[in-house]
Write a protein that binds this DNA or RNA. Structure first.
Length: 499
RNA sequence: GCGAAAGUAGCUCAGCUGGUAGAGCGCGACCUUGCCAAGGUCGAGGUCGCGGGUUCGAACCCCGUCUUUCGCUCCA
């Protein structure tokens, strides 16, 4: 899985990306004046624009390009039973134990399960069974000390250090919990959602009925999710609070693999359309599947720290809806009126689900890393590095910057007129400080695709120059053409039409 | 949670064997300036992460602590 190192110039390091992101208002460490908060980041004035643009492209790609996909916005708080149904409460409250000698961490339940298997292999299956029962009882009572004693009394040793020098058993809370209710003793425990998917599942019938949706159809959602176990690594790639862009696609059981394949392809195309090059994208098929899935693939992007997941496409079967049906005692069935081969309606079933789930922050980071460009320009003495963000114009935080060539002779006033003409159409910046070369460079650094210069010729014939970010070439155009010319290139349509 | 490294101006960093805090870039004002990080003058900005100790004297040595980063672990 390790990628070959590129032979040419040293690749841009993550550190350069982080510095640039902070320096130019894209991403700041959270609560920085208080020394920061691990694995949490804030988006700055340029970052929020880029991220919003990405979210908008995704939203439109889902809900506008597919007539059978609609969106919702479910709350972050959900009924606690939601997480029982999804398996998050039971499967993911792992009891952990550390061996003090090897410094390795294990799941306490897995150590005991291994021991039970060992008994079974040695012809004592009933002893193994008893052990598992005892473990289940202790975990059920949340008796972590008891679990530790059980591990010690069973003589379980660390496979590496071969010692039984164990720490206490600790519960790792993978979900963030909080209380609903302002009076402490009446408050009840609830969780911040660890994934947005469940908000879609619990609204499946609401949307299906009120929208008169026919299977196959999808529900899309963009929203924050929270995971407590995340430790800070690789910048915004792993965050405790992050944003997902998810779509759950409900299909007739038995057709899920076709849809899985279709979405797999559709989603890869999306990433290419927002400007990620094909050679930096690849599929990574899961060998080991999560408890709810019967097929899963990641779309990975080549970050400076290697190929990592930006999107997951999972065939989730009917696990979630079935589980919600059982726990809520509300039928989650769909009546399929389509006729089968015998001419009869297909009838009632719980739909299967194909999920596409992109990390908005990961997509942001991928696009940002990919856009970050350092080029050596000039010769000899004049050689220097030009740094710019090669963002798709539709994604760029600022679409155009307008400069008077010099700050006199009525050029600023003329340039302001141009600003007024354009600003209702797209986001523009006006700058008159410093030499014009410096102003061009400043815009390059935040990825502004077009710089418009108002010069003396403008005063005579109402033409300006448009300077292109990537090539630094300029063309002269009438002011009256700017709106259509730039508007054309910065429209989200330029991305959507590739899909 | 374990191990390691780091923390000095907005940013990148220098600061010798302990002697009152520096550079470059950036930022602000003014002047100059006819197109790719232009020049000049002036200026703002630092309790050297925090607390304690040693010392006549600590950014520097010692102890503690916090935070961040990297590796291990975890990652639905």
């Amino acid at each position: 899985m390790e990628d070959a190192k590129p032979k040419q110039a040293p690749a841009t390091s993550l550190q350069d990306i982080i510095s640039h992101a902070k320096e130019y208002g894209f991403v700041f460490p959270s609560s920085e004046i208080y020394d920061g908060l691990q694995a949490v980041y804030d988006y700055g004035q340029n970052g929020v624009e880029l991220k919003n643009n990405l979210k908008q492209v995704w939203w439109k790609a889902m809900t506008q390009l597919h007539e059978n996909v609609v969106g919702i916005d479910a709350a972050i708080f959900m009924h606690p039973l939601t997480w029982k149904a999804s398996g998050h409460v039971d499967s993911f409250n792992d009891p952990m134990i550390d061996n003090k000698d090897s410094k390795k961490r294990y799941r306490a339940d897995q150590l005991l399960e291994l021991k039970a298997e060992e008994y079974a292999a040695n012809g004592q299956p009933e002893k193994g069974h008893e052990l598992l029962l005892e473990m289940g009882r202790l975990l059920g009572e949340n008796d972590l000390n008891g679990v530790r004693e059980l591990i010690i009394s069973e003589g379980i040793v660390d496979p590496i250090s071969k010692t039984a020098n164990w720490t206490e058993v600790r519960q790792f809370n993978l979900m963030f919990s909080t209380q609903v209710g302002s009076v402490a003793e009446d408050a009840s425990l609830i969780y911040l959602r660890p994934e947005t998917a469940q908000g879609i599942f619990v609204n499946f019938l609401n949307v299906q009925k009120t929208g008169r949706m026919k299977i196959p159809f999808g529900i899309a959602q963009i929203g924050k999710a929270f995971r407590n176990e995340i430790v800070a690594r690789q910048f915004t790639f792993r965050m405790r609070e992050f944003e997902q862009m998810e779509m759950q696609f409900f299909v007739r059981p038995g057709t899920e693999m076709e849809w899985y394949e279709k979405w797999k392809e559709t989603r890869l195309n999306f990433h290419k359309a927002v400007g990620l090059p094909a050679e930096k994208l690849k599929y990574h098929i899961h060998e080991k599947l999560a408890h709810y899935a019967n097929a899963a693939v990641d779309i990975e992007f080549q970050f400076p720290f290697g190929f990592r997941e930006i999107e997951g496409i999972h065939s989730r079967t009917d696990f979630d809806l079935k589980s919600h049906q059982e726990l809520s005692r509300k039928k989650q069935q769909y009546f399929d009126n389509d006729l089968d081969e015998n001419g009869k309606p297909v009838g009632n079933y719980i739909p299967y689900v194909v999920e596409t789930s992109v990390g908005a922050d990961r997509l942001f980071l991928a696009v940002f890393c990919n856009a970050y460009t350092e080029e050596v320009v000039g010769e000899g003495e004049n050689q220097k590095t030009r740094t710019y963000l090669k963002l798709h114009p539709a994604l760029a935080p600022v679409k155009a910057a307008i400069f008077p060539l010099v700050r006199k002779d009525g050029l600023p006033e003329k340039a302001q007129e141009v600003v007024k003409q354009l600003r209702s159409e797209f986001r523009v910046i006006y700058e008159e400080r410093d030499a014009i070369g410096k102003r061009y460079t400043r815009q390059d650094l935040i990825g502004t695709p077009f710089c418009i210069a108002v010069d003396y010729q403008t005063l005579e014939d109402n033409t300006v120059t448009i300077r292109y970010r990537d090539t630094t070439e300029q063309v002269r155009v009438p002011i009256s053409d700017l709106k259509s010319r730039i508007g054309q290139e910065v429209s989200i349509e330029r991305i959507l039409e590739q899909l």
